[in-house]
């Protein structure tokens, strides 16, 4: 199954060799951001079972730091790293506190924290943020495309490595039963904090790519809770807690959204909401489960 992901990565690397369509490259960048958001959320929400509604805070924070530095003349690759570090530092600052909350309370608490940040940023930086003028004149899509692809590859690679590791198994044990995990030797708080650091650091990287890609936006826009909700939606559609699921979910979601948004404008949100409810109720394993069920059927048939 890992080969499917590698093949997908190779395919996306090759696309710009065959087409110069701005439309496709733009769609590609959006897809990579979607994969990164969904998969980074999945590390904390899916593997470790800590359902956070505050993921956007770190996407926004990464975007804010990277954009500010980049706007002041720092090279983009160099500007992304402090964005990641600020996210990690902030997550450690709130992590000890947030993990005192469990289940629904953790979800609500993280949402409240993210909304506070969004409102603060909106008040402090009400003006629109525009790309530096030198960068605007020679804006090229291709470096954004490949940076986005590198981001998506990194995030998926980290998730895949985690899924095969002892630490990843410990995280899943915590998701299943905290007390039993602790009784089996798993340090619960340490594993949760590690999942948080990985998840938010990667979200910060995604924010940096967002800041590099978008010519102009309101600084509070990447803090919007919609980013968190989309990450959750994509993870659940594809298969929460798996490596392939969030990638599949992001592909499905980005393409369908592109198709629906043009034709149905606002109704498409209603469609995704309904889809989410249907998946949670009828197909808790997501699209990945369809595949495994199909394979089991084929095996039985042969």
């Amino acid at each position: 199954m890992l080969w499917a992901l590698l093949g997908l990565g190779a395919g996306f690397t090759a696309i710009p060799l065959f087409t110069e369509s701005d439309y496709l490259l733009n769609l590609g960048v959006q897809l990579f951001l979607a994969v990164a958001l969904a998969q980074s959320w999945n590390v904390l929400g899916g593997f470790t079972g800590q359902i956070t509604l505050g993921h956007a805070a770190f996407f926004g924070l990464g975007a804010l730091v990277t954009r500010t530095l980049w706007g002041n003349g720092v090279g983009i690759l160099l500007a992304i790293i402090p964005g990641i570090l600020v996210c990690i530092a902030f997550s450690l600052l709130i992590g000890g506190l947030a993990f005192r909350l469990r289940g629904d309370y953790f979800a609500i608490g993280t949402l409240a924290l993210a909304e506070m940040l969004r409102i603060i940023v909106g008040n402090l930086l009400p003006g629109i943020s525009t790309i530096p003028s030198t960068a605007l004149t020679n804006y090229a899509l291709l470096p954004r495309y490949y940076l986005g692809l590198a981001l998506a590859a990194l995030v998926v690679g980290v998730a895949a490595a985690l899924a095969r590791s002892r630490i990843g198994l410990g995280m899943q044990a915590i998701r299943e039963d905290e007390a039993a995990a602790a009784a089996s030797g798993v340090g619960v708080l340490g594993h949760k904090l590690l999942a948080l650091v990985i998840s938010t650091g990667l979200a910060g990287f995604a924010g940096g790519v967002f800041a590099y890609y978008h010519a102009s936006y309101y600084p509070q826009y990447p803090f919007s809770p919609l980013w968190s909700f989309e990450a959750i939606l994509m993870s659940f559609i594809g298969g929460v807690g798996t490596v392939h699921g969030p990638v599949l979910g992001a592909l499905f979601y980005t393409i369908l959204k592109e198709y629906l948004a043009v034709r149905l404008v606002e109704i498409h949100l209603l469609i995704f909401g309904t889809l989410f409810i249907l998946i949670v109720l009828l197909l808790p394993g997501g699209l990945v489960e369809v595949w495994t069920r199909f394979r089991r059927l084929v095996h039985r048939g042969s």
């Binding site: 198994l169 899943q172 044990a173 299943e176 039993a180 995990a181 807690g241």
Partner: peptide, 15 residues
């Protein structure tokens, strides 16, 4: 309280 979402082997691998 086995880890219900994991396989039997994974349960043991945690320990």
């Amino acid at each position: 309280r086995p880890f219900l979402g994991l396989t039997a082997r994974q349960n043991i691998l945690v320990g």
